[in-house]
């Protein structure tokens, strides 16, 4: 199995992918501790990052965190971002997402985790005016988000499509080849990370799922058997019929761009 796939028309794009993977590996050696108070909105990346950090500490389900990120991006698409504290909105979308997904996160836990993530090293928030103000702010913000989103808070996620595509591919590739590279893990990681970017709202969930799988296949140079590499038909045409090749590339590039948006830590 070649890590770089066959040389050819994809080789330039492939190089990007490999670079991204390398960059990722480098960064992942140590989880960086961001000082959110020094970061700006960054097109929604910062609050999304905050959602995932807090959400994981709260042990929310992956779909709950994805829901929170989508709700946050949708909210800021409708309003002037400078009028709102993005961390309050992020914490409130986590709270709302817990309810939407029936994976309730306790409001007190959210307040403590959010507070501690913003002010690292501080002890838990004392029950006092500050706590009650935060609690009230989250409850009010939740209602505001619901109203701004016109109560449309249920989301069709790419995850379920991805699961079915991957399951079919497992049989398609055969167990040995499937186990040789962590395709499913990588695709799922790309998908989760793509939630840092509001452009995820612009694409059909099925298409996002395919693009993330494509990227994972390319990273590990995995080729699907019985597929002729030609311009007329893409490997994914058995799964989705309405995804044009250039759109497919566009999504993949958007996914890769996310990794350039990560703030540098000193």
């Amino acid at each position: 199995m070649s890590y770089y796939g066959s040389a050819g028309k994809y080789s330039n794009k492939m190089k990007d992918v490999i670079d991204v993977m390398e960059l990722q590996r480098e960064k992942n050696r140590k989880i960086q501790q961001l000082d959110y108070r020094k970061l700006d909105f960054a097109g929604g990346f910062t609050p999304a990052r905050f959602i995932f950090e807090c959400g994981m500490k709260l042990q929310g389900q992956p779909l709950t965190l994805a829901t929170a990120a989508i709700l946050m991006h949708r909210f800021f698409k409708e309003v002037d971002q400078s009028n709102y504290d993005c961390y309050l909105i992020a914490a409130s979308t986590l709270y709302l997402a817990g309810k939407v997904k029936d994976d309730p996160l306790k409001i007190r836990d959210i307040i403590n985790v959010a507070h501690n993530t913003l002010h690292r090293g501080n002890g838990p928030l004392e029950i006092g005016d500050e706590y009650w103000n935060m609690r009230d702010a989250i409850v009010q913000a939740e209602l505001l988000i619901m109203r701004v989103l016109k109560f449309e808070v249920s989301i069709t996620h790419p995850h379920k499509f991805m699961l079915h595509y991957l399951k079919s591919m497992e049989g398609w590739l055969g167990r040995d080849q499937w186990n040789a590279a962590p395709i499913a893990r990588t695709a799922a990681a790309f998908l989760q990370d793509f939630h840092h970017d509001p452009s995820i709202l612009d694409y059909a969930p099925q298409h996002v799922a395919i693009a993330c799988i494509s990227l994972a296949l390319q990273c590990y140079g995995v080729r699907l058997p019985l597929i002729e590499d030609n311009d007329d038909e893409a490997w994914y045409s058995v799964f989705v019929k309405d995804l044009q090749k250039d759109r497919h590339w566009e999504i993949m590039e958007k996914v890769m761009e996310v990794y350039n948006k990560e703030p540098e830590t000193s």
């Binding site: 309810k99 409001i107 609690r135 989250i138 209602l143």
Partner: peptide
């Protein structure tokens, strides 16, 4: 609207309805 905000059941039901 309680101390915990909008009830979970309302959020789920309204979004499902939509």
């Amino acid at each position: 609207i309680t101390d915990d905000g909008v009830p979970l059941s309302t959020i789920r039901e309204v979004s499902l309805l939509k």
